[in-house]
């Protein structure tokens, strides 16, 4: 398969995820479409329970117990049809994941070096060679005394160092796509900054394609090229990062931004979003966000908003969007 330059590396179309429940299938992710070009960085944001992790896990083929439908294409190749064996190969060679909790995803009984080298060994490279590559990788990720750290165990490391080890293991097999699910959430402010800087630097050096998931908009402000907002299992808004922060078209993204206390603007009033997100299976009529939306009108409770493509980067699902000037002017 020769990847055509114009096809995006990752193309998710109408992805739905549902969980079996006593009252039939419970829709958790509803027809989400995403396109991420080579070397591009997409952030997925949204409140807890909005389905961000489920999307990430579906891309990596990790939702075997749930009903996943739609299409996930990596470089033009459909992933959802693959057997779990073939999917293992894809994960080995092309997709890596970094998760929130580095302790839970590191094996406490294996040395750090062995865990970082593992993907190479599985891929059939020699032990010595893999080990040296692991040490180089750890060194590149700023782990002091990488050689001796490699023979240590995960519990001897701090949270930030563990997250670096995870990153090293994720990057060593030179994946095309890196999926990072809340990679900095459990970390202290300073460590969070270090991991973020590192992620940015190594991704830039390798022109990695990254899908980063977070509930903290600030974290992706400088990292992502584009941001997609999810609400109640749907992607409701997507835009270039600058415009999304400056002029959020969707009232939900706007509300998320207004709720963040800002170090650079401490006097600003904090505006909480009223109410709570709906539970899967108990969605409101019309637009799922309307009961909490400050801009909602009668129509919002009745009609489900269709996806609007305002220009080549902005899309949203809203009857009463806050259109950016640039779009209005056209």
């Amino acid at each position: 398969m020769s990847p055509d330059e114009s096809t995006p590396l990752l193309e998710v179309t109408q992805l739905s995820v549902a969980a079996p429940s006593p009252n039939g299938e419970l829709p958790l992710v509803r027809e989400v479409s995403l396109r991420v070009g080579r070397g591009e960085r997409l952030a997925i944001v949204g409140e807890s329970g909005s389905g961000k992790s489920l999307v990430a896990r579906s891309i990596a083929g990790l939702n075997r117990k749930l009903t996943v439908s739609g299409s996930v294409r990596l470089g033009g190749r459909e992933l959802l049809d693959l057997s779990s064996r073939q999917m293992n190969l894809v994960r080995r060679d092309r997709i890596s994941m970094v998760l929130q909790d580095p302790m839970a995803s590191l094996n406490p009984l294996m040395t750090v070096g062995a865990q970082v080298a593992e993907p190479l060994i599985i891929a059939g490279r020699g032990r010595r060679e893999s080990r040296d590559a692991a040490i180089r990788m750890l060194d590149e990720l700023g782990i002091p005394q990488a050689r001796s750290a490699a023979s240590g165990y995960p519990h001897e490391l701090s949270g930030g160092m563990r997250q670096r080890v995870m990153l090293a293991a994720a990057l060593i097999a030179e994946p095309e796509l890196l999926i990072a699910d809340e990679p900095t959430t459990a970390l202290d402010v300073r460590v969070q900054r270090q991991v973020l800087e590192l992620l940015h630097a190594v991704a830039a050096e390798r022109s990695l394609t990254v899908v980063m998931i977070t509930h903290d908009l600030s974290v992706v402000a400088g990292f992502a090229d584009r941001v997609a907002t999810m609400y109640a299992g749907r992607k409701v808004h997507e835009d270039r990062v600058d415009r999304l922060f400056a002029e959020p078209a969707h009232p939900y993204t706007r509300a998320l931004l207004d709720a963040i206390p800002r170090l650079d603007d401490p006097g600003a009033e904090l505006l909480p979003i009223a109410g709570t997100p709906p539970r899967p299976g108990a969605l409101p009529s019309g637009c799922s966000f309307h009961p909490r939306c400050p801009r909602a009108v009668e129509r919002c409770a009745v009609d489900v908003p269709a996806t609007t493509f305002a220009d080549d980067s902005l899309e949203f699902e809203c009857h009463r969007p806050l259109l950016p000037l640039e779009v209005v002017a056209r």
Binding site: V189, R193, H200, S218, D264
Partner: peptide, 22 residues
């Protein structure tokens, strides 16, 4: 260092910080 590390929801400032590290 604590104050420097805080992320703010402002793409321009955040990018500048990341670039500095690069």
């Amino acid at each position: 260092s604590l104050l420097d590390a805080v992320a703010v929801p402002d793409p321009r400032r955040e990018r500048a910080k990341l670039a500095e590290f690069g």
